[in-house]
Simulated assay, not measured.
Amino acid sequence: MSDALRIIFMGTPEFAVPSLQALLDCPDQVVAVVCQPDRRQGRGKKLCPPPVKVLVEEAEIPVFQPTCICDDAFMGTVSDLQPDLIVVTAYGRILPGRLLNLPRLGTINVHGSLLPKYRGAAPIQWALINGESETGVTIMQMDNGVDTGDILLPITMPITEDDTSGTLFRKLADLGGQALFEALSRIKQGSLSPIRQDDSLSCSAPMLKKEMGQLDWSQSAQELHCLIRGLDPWPSAYSFIDKRRFRFFKPQVIPGEVTEKPGTLCRADKNGVLVATGQDYLLVREIQPEGKKRMCVQACICGMQLPVGEQFT
């Protein structure tokens, strides 16, 4: 199978941009792009196009932003384009089965985890929260389940001690583009063999909630270290002292026998704030006091006094 494929791309946020760029760089033809409708953003509530739409504005590729992807009108539009393949990266909606099966080669997805681990909406964040040492992307054949289709091509990547969900998003987005480029080449060569997922190894990655960010200092410093990084930049981890909320970023585990109560603010200096936990200490190098911007701890203590000896609650 060497002829150029007719491809419809479905994706919306910044994470999907490298995947679309990979398609634009390959010899196949992107016949249309489908993304979510423009949204109002910022204080001025200005109507803004999704990043994927911005990428193709000058490429003379049709862009569709349906409010409903299940109606006959949209299905007719897709059918008229006669796609060989649909590629999906973070589109943001569950696709109906008749759409998935419409192209002769079906529909493939770029997923931000090593399936069957972390099926769902927030795979990157949960890999960090659960302390995984590696993650990756999986090119999978989509079916009617949630990230349950056959695996076509997995590519792994290590997670560093300083990675956050923000840094991993950027890394995995780029890796997804690279994996997609390779997968398309191998699909046309007929050298990809679908592998059925082992459901017994699966775990879910549900959407994050703001209340997940409230820290329980009786946990170990390592657990808190993973949680803070997994929730950075959103919804972020936080705790209270003197009824004032502080958000925490850039944590580091400091081994040592803890003699203070968990949550005790043991030190605040240019190196960060040192807090006692259920096991070892946690050094936090960036902080965001309520009502202020995120800043290094040194900048924070220049403008306010942190109550050393008090407990975060």
Rank of each mutant, 00 (worst) to 15 (best):
E58P: 00
E58I: 00
E58N: 14
A59I: 03
I61V: 14
P62M: 05
P62I: 09
P62K: 04
V63Q: 03
F64R: 10
F64S: 11
Q65K: 11
Q65Y: 02
Q65I: 04
P66A: 13
P66Q: 13
T67Q: 13
C68T: 07
I69V: 15
I69Y: 08
I69T: 13
C70R: 15
C70S: 14
D71V: 03
D71L: 00
D71R: 00
A73Y: 07
F74M: 11
M75K: 05
G76V: 02
V78I: 15
S79P: 01
D80W: 01
D80P: 00
Q82D: 15
Q82P: 01
Q82E: 15
P83D: 06
P83Q: 15
L85R: 09
L85H: 09
I86E: 10
I86V: 15
V87R: 01
V88C: 03
V88L: 07
T89W: 00
A90Q: 14
A90K: 03
A90L: 04
Y91S: 02
R93H: 12
R93D: 05
R93I: 01
I94C: 03
L95S: 13
L95W: 12
L95H: 12
P96R: 04
P96H: 06
P96M: 01
G97N: 12
G97S: 12
R98D: 11
R98N: 15
R98H: 09
R98Y: 02
R98V: 01
R98Q: 12
L99S: 12
L99P: 08
N101V: 00
L102D: 03
P103M: 11
P103Q: 08
L105Y: 11
T107F: 03
I108P: 00
I108Q: 02
N109D: 08
N109H: 07
N109R: 02
V110C: 05
G112M: 07
S113E: 04
L115P: 04
L115S: 10
L115E: 11
K117Q: 14
Y118I: 10
Y118K: 05
Y118R: 07
R119D: 08
R119W: 09
R119V: 07
R119H: 09
G120M: 04
G120T: 05
G120H: 05
A122K: 08
A122V: 12
A122E: 13
A122S: 15
A122I: 06
P123W: 09
P123A: 10
I124K: 06
I124P: 12
Q125R: 14
Q125L: 10
W126Y: 14
A127R: 02
A127D: 04
A127W: 08
A127Q: 05
L128Y: 05
L128G: 11
L128M: 15
I129D: 01
G131Y: 04
G131L: 13
S133N: 14
E134C: 14
T135D: 01
T135M: 08
T135W: 07
T135N: 09
T135F: 04
T138P: 01
T138K: 09
T138I: 04
T138D: 02
I139E: 05
I139L: 03
I139G: 11
Q141Y: 06
D143M: 10
N144A: 11
G145W: 02
G145T: 09
V146Y: 13
V146A: 12
